[in-house]
Design a protein around this nucleic acid. Sequence first.
DNA 1: ATCCTCCCCTAC
DNA 2: TAAGGTAGGGGAGGAT
Length: 985
Amino acid sequence: MKKKPTNPNNGFDEWGGYMEAKKRKLEEQFESEANGDRTRGGIFQGVAIFVNGYTNPSAEELKALMLLHGGIYHHYESSRTTHIIASNLPHTKIKKLKPGEKIIKPEWIVDSIASGKLMDHKKYLLISDSTSAKPLSNLFRKCNIDNAESSTCSKSEAYSCKSVDTSVPKVSTIENELDTVNTSATNAKADTSSMAEQTNSVNNSAPNPQATNTNTTDYKSDTVNISAPKPEALTTKTASNEDFLGEFYNKSRLHHLSTMGAMFKQYVNQLREKHDGVFKGIEALRAWKSSSLQNTEEEELDETFSDNPKPSHSDPVIMHIDMDCFFVSVGIRNNPELKDQPVAVAHGKGNQAKEREGVDRQAEFDIYRQRTMNRMGLSSENHTRFNKVNAIGEFDSMSEIASCNYKAREYGLKNGMFVGQALKKCPQLKIVPYDFEGYKEVSYCLYNLIASLTLNIEAVSCDEMYVDCSQLFQKFELTPLQFATFLRETIVKETGCTCSTGFGSNKLQARLATKKAKPNVNYGIRFQNNQEMETFMKQLSREVEKRLEEVKMKGKCITLKLMVRSAEAPREASKFLGHGVCDYITKSISLPIYISQASQIFKEVISIVEKLKLDSKELRGIGIQMSKLELQSKMHATIDSFFTNKVKPSYVDSKPGPSYSNSKPGPSYADSKPGPSYVDSKPGPSYVDSKPGPSYVDSKPGPSYSDSNPGSTYADSKPGPSHEAAMSSPKKLIFVPDCDLTKSPKRKAARSPRKKSPKKVEKVGDMKMYLMKAQKIYPEVPEDFDKSVFEALPDDIKREVLRNREEQLSLLKTKEYSPQLVAPAAHIVPDNLDESFLNALPEDIRQELIEDLSKQQNMPLRTEENSSRDKKVQLEDRAPSPLNATLDTSSSQLLSSSLSLQEMRTMLREWLCECQPEPSDVEMFSDYLKQLVEDRNLSQIVVLMRFLQRHVTKKENLVWGEAYREMLECLQLTMKLKYGHELKI
DNA sequence: ATCCTCCCCTAC
DNA sequence: TAAGGTAGGGGAGGAT
């Protein structure tokens, strides 16, 4: 590189000029500080450290230590730097290390000070042959619960980060030193020899969330507080500045998320390696258990636990634990008064974006939009990703919200949203700054708490992990709910932050359970006054309007469902923002006309509320339903045409897999093929002869759910030769209502099927499903069905066909459609994943489950060791054909559709080899896809369509190409109607 | 057929 | 002003 001659008059615009000057200045500054403060002999003479990324002790603390012991601290790496210090580096950074460059753990400094001499840094290399291989060695070491019993340590010791982390010995000595340098970083101040005191420092430190940052100005001003009066901080603007990257990473939430995730995975490994077999938290858990059993009335306890299956001893129990809106919780843990206000964590403070030359937001967003449409098709025009940019004004802040609390989410705020848009939706939004040290501190607390009970942990991120509780539960006779309550209470106490837990027999179940338990993406219904309640009802009315519009319908019956705190219930529910014990009130109004507008809906709803004379403070759940819906489409014509059309045989085989018995979610269709195909079908758990037994369950017992919904459910009759003719009748509907997750499948089975028509909790996606059912009639009903064929049927069959038709019609007319927002209750997922479990899931979660199942079912806890093993197995298992590669999964067994995959694959191959499919082939495939849609087998649909797409494109097969496009369009439409979102292929 | 790499997507 | 990183899974497609 050619170096320009140095201009002594202008050191700042030359290469090496500005930065060199800055570095020199910082070093001089450090020197002057050192001269003032240095009181002891320096063991770090000649050592100049540069701290890269997060360390423990922190960079500021290390700086102070270097100051005390004769070393030099470099804000920037330079040729004069002798040692680079880091606790964790992302793999990508490691790969970029220059040859010979060595990274040393901060423990080197701590230990050196502790021993009073400079230790050999080779033992503290972050990346060495030994460290890269070693963490894997003990991964499978199971925790020794037997030893745990002998633990006599206090709870507070058990959760302390540093008392567990033996890699930082004699911390208090060093911290005392730090205190003398007047460092006020929280970590340094806390006397970590006692958890109680650490907790005090967490809970009782400065009441202002910004206090942590302002307190540390002395040491952090140049990196954290950009408004600090240090000139260089103000010059850090773009990547053209050498210190841009450090500054950038320092403030990047995503970078912190990522590095902290890696850090805690590593931390768990460290804990395992260093574990002495004693679980220090067990004693506290025992104490809690005995005291909670005493304090809880038996009756209440029985009720609480009866819905939650007690896992049998042999079953694995996996817990998923996840902090609630982590960044915000940490940010406001010392400000209880902020808890009830909408709060978000973001960099930006408000809508202060300055006018800058060359900016044209509108044009820029248009380009984004255009590009996405080019890539994803025209249908992406209204893609949700554009909401973000559409809603932003010319000078609104484009700082992103890293995390917002549930109160803020009531206003429609979401993580990732721009501050500008958020402030429009919620002008009173409080924005608190990031507190990365705080996140780390709380995370350590969380991990230490869990690690004090078991080390069967898989770290997912700084606020999320899976825990294998099997042994723990068995040993200490705990139920999931007991354990969850203990953990959640303890975590709130220790960290001031709340968390959610979910349990299942595998990780996926546990995660879904957590999702269900989250105070969600279902708000905590709490109102201070009527005004707030009305505002919320208006929002809810708009939601109903929106969804009615989506399915092009209007209704003439409005039902308002309310949950009101029971008089005997405690003022606040035990679950954070949960609904607690409630009375249920259901009132409906029949209108003379069909309506769909939000204002109309709100008017009716509010009139009901006024008549009820409720205290809005006591409301815990609100649901608005529209029913008696008028279809705007040609649905009636379609259903009626059913009896005049002629029969056209269509291919729908009936070989339902054994795993899908009689309780499929949504409508299922029996074989329509008269004669052999039906008779040949195997008897057994096929849904053709389903008995509706296990599927009919009231989701929530109570007065509001007692009204029946005739026609919404019916089962088919038993198969037999006399019914062959009936099989040419329209397909039978077997509709299984959604039910409460807290009910175990066994309880469902105990119910009498015909006792009562099912009453389900209507949910958001339901109307789409009903609409789909109606539409389904058209493609599924033979088009050229001859009325004379109908007439020729035996009378009982005729009656049945008529009844079916009536019920289908009534299904369309009477099913209710309602978004329902109910404050969440705690949920524990049944421990056996079967079809009943699937049915019990809410629509959106069920979809997710189906999509994820093929990847995730029965995953073991992931550790570094077994994840690499998994990978290997996966590769070995991979079958040659692209179709095989993705279909040989557990989902194919669990979600088998009527045609076996093997058959379908064979057929597809044959067709594609011939390249000249008959129209009937196309139709067959089309039918197969429809069946897949019915089965909600999304993953398989996508796989098949992609497979086809690839081959069709490759071979330029026009016949297939056109057929493919038709099928794709049909499928996409169906998917959109049914699931409410685009099918991306 | 198998392996490898690149690219895209998703989750935190 | 804003701080849109990082790991891992999986598909596509090329090299062998």
